[in-house]
Design a binder for these strands. Structure first.
Length: 467
RNA sequence: GACCCUAUCGUCUAGAGGCCUAGGACAAUACCCUUUCACGGUAUGAACCCGGGUUCGAAUCCCGGUGGGGUCGCCA
């Protein structure tokens, strides 16, 4: 049974890198008919917040990455961790350490000065034949894991291949703090063991933790899961993503008018490939996804390609769905009431010309509220000849059947009668009706706008002087 | 600094020794389509980090260099 998990720490929102990690872990489980587990790693009581938990869950929901089990919270598993710590202590595989934070800092400083890798020196590590100093009174010790000192730890990483680290590089890391709460490297192991995780798919930044965790698995007599480390995603500018720089919440993409399927497709393709396939559904992705084709090197985020995918999905999106999205956005501007425009028709008209939902809502704007083209714009487009043609067109519009072919015919008659070419009349008409010189085919716009609005707007533009 | 990882067009990538005069996609440029602007279509330019090996033959394997990234917390 394949079991994967996504294990974010709730210290912030779900960003694009986390989303991709979740996506790959999810797809891997789906691909193999396994289970995808959501686990909230909130052992850092000081930094974890319920709001962040909610933000992560909301982000996952927006993307449609449903978990089969969980969410599990590490803070609710403290008794279990305590039990395992006690077990390790009893077996002599962990020990209390009374070194203070200050002493540790001094130690690291000295090591750095000597050009060494800063690490705990094992001063409280019990060894046969070694006498430890008496425990300082009043100090609550941390518990450290007794890491093997010889040999190497080696594993076959699902994306990076064989990775080998010497135990001499590792120190005895803390598994429980002075206050008794367990720490990350310890909890992950106990959880992955208890939850029978078969494939640990996570960010690149955990590669260095893996050998320690493997040693812990061994000490616990637990079976080893497979590990796969995804390399990181760089910003559009090639710089590392951080809260300060470019790392935005996936929900920000929702705000910015992206469709979740576009974001998902983009993320799927960022760091993984299936030959030349660029556009595919999540069902296809799940059928194809494999670790072998995940790239080992870092990938740079490219907003333009995301935009292209978004435009692609917009073109084939259901008009009713788009109408709801437009409505939601218009509501945000207080424009959702007092109109009888069929927004689904507006969406059909514009969905292949815009890049995102916000642009779509902007395009719908003049359908819902009469535009106010500036005097300059009107002056620029409404020459006397144009006004004349417009007036006669207005006359035709009053009595004609309101259907696109009929409207097109009326337009052509007017053109012929006034010796004009289509753009000469269509562009001014666009300015008058929508407040801008570009739009979809003018006859289609006319039809969706409706007779009343069209006539009102032409009248308003021509003013009382013309009749 | 130490350790670990990594390196194909500007970007995402295909490529698992001969199929590569290196393929696709985004972006760029040009043209076509056209009722404007888009969309769409066609075409063009654009890359194997460097140096050594191994081999009849290397983008592909090995070593070194360089660049990039990660980690070195009683954070996760």
């Amino acid at each position: 049974m394949i079991r994967t998990r996504f294990a974010p720490s709730p210290t912030g929102y779900l960003h694009i890198g986390g989303a991709r990690t979740a996506l790959y872990a999810w797809a891997y489980a789906r691909r193999h008919g396994g289970a995808f587990i959501l686990r909230i790693e909130d052992t850092d009581l000081a930094r974890s917040t319920p709001a962040a938990v909610q933000a992560i869950i909301d982000g996952m929901r927006w993307l449609g990455l449903a978990h089969d089990e969980g969410p599990f919270y590490q803070t609710q598993r403290f008794p279990r961790y305590k039990e395992v710590v006690a077990q390790l202590l009893a077996a002599g595989q962990a020990y209390p350490c009374y070194t203070s934070a200050d002493e540790l800092e001094q130690l690291r400083e000295a090591q750095r000065a000597r050009g060494e890798k800063p690490r705990y020196d094992g001063r409280w590590r019990p060894e046969p034949g070694r006498t430890l100093p008496p425990a300082p009174p009043g100090v609550a010790p941390v518990i450290r894991f007794k890491n093997p000192q010889d040999g190497v730890v080696s594993w076959e990483d699902g994306v990076k291949g064989r990775i080998t680290v010497a135990n001499a590089e590792l120190d005895d890391f803390v598994i429980a703090r002075g206050d008794g709460t367990p720490t990350y490297n310890f909890c992950v192991v106990v959880d992955d063991w208890d939850m029978r995780i078969s494939h640990v798919i996570r960010g690149d930044d955990h590669v260095n933790n893996t050998p320690r965790q493997i040693n812990l698995f061994h000490a616990l007599g637990a079976p080893l899961p497979n590990f796969a480390h995804l390399s990181m995603i760089l910003g559009d500018d090639g710089q590392k993503l951080s809260k300060r720089h470019g790392a935005v919440s996936v929900l920000q993409y929702e705000e910015d008018g992206y469709l979740p399927e576009a974001v998902l497709n983009y993320l799927a393709r960022l760091g993984w490939s299936h030959g030349d396939e660029e556009i595919f559904t999540m069902a296809q992705f799940c059928a194809w996804f494999d670790l072998d084709h995940v790239t080992a090197s870092a990938a740079q985020f490219n907003t333009e390609k995301l935009n292209w995918l978004n435009a692609h999905y917009l073109k084939q999106a259901d008009p009713a769905r788009l109408a709801a999205e437009i409505e939601r956005r218009l509501a945000g501007q207080g424009l959702d009431r007092g109109h009888d425009i069929d927004l689904a028709r507006v969406a059909t008209l514009y969905r292949e010309r815009v890049g995102n939902l916000n642009e779509l809502a902007d395009a719908a704007h003049p359908f819902v509220r009469a535009p106010h083209p500036s005097a300059e714009l009107l002056a620029q487009h409404l020459s006397p000849a144009v006004r004349e043609a417009l007036a006669s067109l207005r006359g035709k519009f009053a009595g004609v059947a309101w259907e696109q072919p009929v409207l097109a015919a009326a337009l052509k008659e007017t053109l012929a009668a006034h010796g004009m070419k289509m753009p000469q009349l269509a562009i001014p008409l666009r300015v008058v009706l929508l407040g801008q010189p570009q739009s979809p085919a003018i006859d289609a716009v006319l039809e969706v706008l409706g007779r009343d609005r069209v006539c009102e707007r032409i009248d308003a533009a021509l003013g009382p002087a013309t009749s």
